[in-house]
Amino acid sequence: MTAYIARRLLSIIPTLLIVGSLVFFVMRMASGDPAVAILGASATQEALERLRAEMGLDRPLLVQYGEFLLNAVRGDFGRSLITGRSVAEQVFRAFPDTLELVFWGMLIGTVIGLPTGIIAGVRHNSIFDYISRIVALLGLSMPAFYLGILLLLAFAIHLQWFPVISAPRGGFFERMYYTFLPALSLGLIQASFIMRMVRSSLLEVLQEDYIRTAHAKGVHPRRVSYHHALRNALIPVITVMGLYIGTLLAGTVLTETVFNRPGLGRLLVGAIQQRDYPLIQGGLMIYAAVIVVVNTLVDILYGVVDPTIRYD
């Protein structure tokens, strides 16, 4: 058991290594010569060479690659080409705002998706089931940023219940107020995923032999559904929710843009538009690291709660 967890945790390292290599080589492909990217095409040969030497670009690519990895481990992603500031500082400053959004999005998604999915699963083929399935399908098909625009139109522009700019500030409740609309737009989409997952998982479990046995033994049907079936049905749901954190994170890139909310997503989009390669590199690495770590944790959690998983 402990060995299993240790092994899973250790597997984060090669995964991050693959991600890091990918990001490094992809960015190098994109930016060509970083010295030219900084100084511009009209720079003199002399100035370019000086900068290359300064940045260590005159050394073999593999040495640079090694150094990039070494620095990345220490949390050093270099400096932004545009502002000259430390990439790590900018990224870590933006990250909490994004995490806040993801957290509330996940919470809203779960609070809505979980009960809906359970009811739809237990009373399948009922009107409730039918309607919630259609709504979930709609949610699944709607880009989160479009839902965001609709919410913005309705609640911020027409009703003026919520602020238009979601730059969170102030205390806990004030921040919640600023975060609500963007979190809702992510959360509703998330709820669609969760609802469908819970429902299908529950239906599958309800067909299993031991549930039939429970019915046969005369256990009250409601107790069968909610007690026996639910617990088993929720196990795969946890995994899926973990996996969708990645999707949710990616969704923030667009949601932050729609709601003019500071955060990692907008930082990344800005960096892409400004071709600020070190910043793009740092932003992607953070996204990657978070997704990899969350996936691993979910895997472990799954292993812990599901006794049928073998730890070999």
Partner: peptide, 22 residues
């Protein structure tokens, strides 16, 4: 399969963004 496993955990939007950057 190890590269695929890593890439699978990435949302397609992020991968798409990365490629468009290049």
């Amino acid at each position: 399969s190890s590269v695929v496993n890593v890439l699978m955990s990435f949302p397609s939007l992020l991968l798409g963004l990365m490629v468009v950057v290049v």
